[in-house]
Design a protein around this nucleic acid. Sequence first.
DNA 1: TTCACCACGCAGCTAAACTACGGGTTGCAT
DNA 2: ATGCAACCCGTAGTTTAGCTGCGTGGTGAA
Lengths: 72, 72
Amino acid sequence: MLQRKLGKRIGDLRRAKKLTQEQLAEAVGCSVEFVSLVERGINAPSVAGLEKFSEVLSVEVKDLFTFEHNKR
Amino acid sequence: MLQRKLGKRIGDLRRAKKLTQEQLAEAVGCSVEFVSLVERGINAPSVAGLEKFSEVLSVEVKDLFTFEHNKR
DNA sequence: TTCACCACGCAGCTAAACTACGGGTTGCAT
DNA sequence: ATGCAACCCGTAGTTTAGCTGCGTGGTGAA
């Protein structure tokens, strides 16, 4: 549930930055497959990973857990 | 670095709630030793764990990553 | 002193973070 | 219509680190 939202959030931030999953993966230092798993909410990055993602996406870690309420 | 801040934050929230490490551990469903490791910044909880900690401490997950700037 | 609370090292288990390969779908160009 | 880029998704595998248990020892308060 939380993972799902987190993944969606990361995907949104990535698209906002006009990055492809492959580019994000390279910048973060992980595999493309893992980025896919994370964005789909199947896996969640470790705390160390969250830090890297936040850096690449130019946001604070807490912003990765900040969701807009009930869009749509 | 991030782990350290996270641990300090969790410790602060726990003390603010007048809880002992043992009580927090039981409420969260983990060992006392792990709570100690987390608060000292040696380990970080998984995302699922972060969720449990936040529930017990009555804050949002993002608040676990919200730090006050340069106290002291 | 005693007792509650916590730091800390060490050793171990296991879940999940993370990778690699391969096929399949969508969409958008040309 | 096809060619390609970007992504989904399953399967299977490796390795990290999340998490536990035990034991010791230190500190401060009653």
